[in-house]
Design a protein around this nucleic acid. Structure first.
Lengths: 135, 135
DNA sequence: GCAAATCTTAAAATTACTTTCAAAACTTTA
DNA sequence: TAAAGTTTTGAAAGTAATTTTAAGATTTGC
């Protein structure tokens, strides 16, 4: 199981609960705490929401996962991967990655960042997905 | 008071509570519900959080104000103004507008938006503000 | 295998947000 | 300008989201 490795690299203990979280998150792409809980409870009947929240935070602290806050919706979480942006459908709520590299977008322009030293760029584009456009 | 006009233009009644909300939001730039409540209660001792939430939502519905969700922090609200992006200091929490126009940024490049029809682009850059850099 | 460090869980607590409902404040309408 | 209708306010109760606590269980490095 590669997830075990992933956790160890980040100096976190590889508990079964954590591996399940990562697996679910990996398969879902983006997932809310609630969805995560619904799925994981099938495997670990006694898992507690506190465990989910705590693990989500430990993994965020070591940049293994990332929080995606979208206007008007619940926060979702994803495995950290190469930089990308998000499109969110305001009709059905689908969240999708797009391969727009946020920091390269800024690089070739000299924006006035008001003196800030930028570490991270989060881009969420809201719109209507192809499916909902048809309706 | 111009705030009265602003509300009427959006077909909302210009109640004193709403005008106070707008005024505070305008002066603060970006404000959380909690901060808003702390300030407004000084003027309207009996105002309820429910009123704040309700008014925030009415004003969002008519695009008078806008929700800004920032990774790791509480949701803030701002008066809708011309398009812009945000920088947020991960050290002190300060949120600042920068004059980067999100949609023009996308216009002159043909991004693959996975078939989405884009309505809105939210950009939040996280980093360290000039003040915190000194420390 | 053992000890140290870390993790899991239930339960309670806290914080965030929403709904309900009656009274008050406004707007119509005639 | 009074009655009728509509909207808003705010208290209270309700739901949802997140954190804390403390005790027992697991993982890891040696």
């Amino acid at each position: 199981m590669k997830y075990q490795e992933l956790l160890k690299q980040h100096r976190l203990k590889a508990t079964p609960q954590r591996m399940a979280i990562i697996e679910l998150m990996y398969n879902a792409g983006h997932i809310t705490i609630e969805e995560l809980y619904q799925s994981i409870v099938k495997k670990f009947a006694s898992i507690s929401l506190a465990t989910l929240y705590k693990n989500i935070h430990s993994m965020m602290d070591v940049s293994l996962i990332r929080e995606v806050k979208v206007p008007g919706y619940k926060t979702k979480y994803e495995i950290e991967k190469s930089e990308h942006a998000h499109v969110m459908c305001t009709s059905c709520g689908e969240l999708k990655d797009i391969s727009l590299n946020p920091s390269s977008l800024l690089e070739n322009r000299q924006f006035d960042l008001a003196g800030y030293k930028a570490d991270d760029v989060a881009i969420v584009i809201s719109g209507i997905c192809p499916n909902c456009q048809k309706k």
